[in-house]
């Protein structure tokens, strides 16, 4: 029983077919895995390419300035007007209302979870919030239109059957788990030593949270809101169902108005001949939507990364 058997000399290993096969497989797999990773880049490229190339037809007929400044959006009328403003304002109204709901609630909830709740309790609460995030958006849309709007009508005079207020509120609740999970992570990453400094001065918990933890986690918390806003802007089903599909440049959120996403849904439901101007409009408006969300996502990404590097 000697361990110095010579079936494994260096030369034998060098020419071993088993090892060669292993090496070939390993090399193949590293190429395959790289390809998987590169696909993500190709997706983004494909998105930009499709949006730009398919909206080309549109921008050849409609000057960019008209598109951005005209106040009416009536692409299927005989007397067609192509101003994106009504869609854009409705989108921003709905997303703005969502943020007005999610910002204060999200701040309170994330401070509560990161600074007040006991770890065990937090471990129970966070999954429950995740369940809220798991509800399909079409279900939220149903809830907004069939349940909440009739209810809200009794309290808010002048509220239309389709309006921006209720779907905005529902979206606010919808993005709440998202806001909380990112900003709570950021707050908990703030080093304990900073908190200890504040507690040593005799500060109360919530004062510590607002004077030390939130400033310390500022870029992370900001990132959470940027990313959440981008979500709200791109959210589709809730507004498509409950905010109506009528392009309407309005300053009153009690009225219904089609957002960019609702418009794309509405057009897709009809028959869109490939290559027609109507077909091109959904890509042109999609391009606007993509540009807005891209800006917020990238900004959020860098803020989050900077925050991670800080601690």
């Amino acid at each position: 029983m000697t361990a110095q058997s010579d079936d494994l000399t260096f030369e034998a290993l060098r020419s071993s077919t088993v090892l060669r096969r292993g090496r070939i497989l390993a090399r193949t797999m590293s190429v395959v895995l790289f390809a998987c990773a590169v696909i993500s880049v190709l997706i983004t490229t494909a998105i930009i390419w499709v949006l730009v190339s398919e909206s080309w037809v549109f921008f050849r007929q409609v000057p960019l300035l008209t598109f951005l400044t005209d106040t009416q959006w009536t692409p299927v009328f005989t007397n067609a007007r192509y101003g994106v403003l009504p869609l854009l304002t409705a989108t921003l109204w709905a997303a703005g209302i969502a943020m007005a709901v999610a910002t204060p609630l999200g701040l309170v909830l994330s401070v509560y979870l990161s600074e007040f709740a006991r770890p065990r309790f937090r471990e129970i609460l966070k999954p429950i919030l995740e369940l809220l995030a798991a509800v399909p958006t079409v279900v939220f849309g149903y809830f907004a239109l069939i349940f909440l709007t009739p209810l809200a009508k009794q309290f808010i005079p002048g509220l239309s059957g389709f309006n921006l207020l209720v779907p905005g509120f529902v979206m606010g609740i919808m993005i709440l788990p998202y806001v909380v999970s990112i900003s709570e992570d950021a707050m908990r990453a703030v080093p304990m030593s900073l908190r200890e400094g504040a507690f040593a001065l005799g500060m109360s918990r919530w004062r510590t949270a607002f004077s030390v933890v939130i400033p310390g986690a500022f870029s992370g918390v900001t990132a959470a809101y940027l990313l959440a806003f981008s979500r709200a802007v791109g959210e589709t089903m809730v507004v498509a169902i409950a905010a109506g599909q009528n392009p309407n440049l309005t300053s009153d959120p009690r009225e219904g108005a089609a957002t960019i996403t609702a418009y794309i849904v509405q057009m897709s439901l009809g028959d869109l001949p490939h290559g027609s101007l109507a077909y091109a409009t959904i890509f042109a408006t999609g391009l606007v939507l993509f540009a807005i969300t891209l800006a917020f996502n990238v900004l959020g990404f860098f803020l989050r990364r900077r925050f991670r590097e800080a601690y």
């Binding site: 494994l8 260096f10 290993l13 060098r14 090892l19 292993g22 090496r23």
Partner: peptide
């Protein structure tokens, strides 16, 4: 020399 070979020895 392939490090894998070294680790086999």
């Amino acid at each position: 020399i392939d490090p894998i070979m070294v680790r086999l020895l």
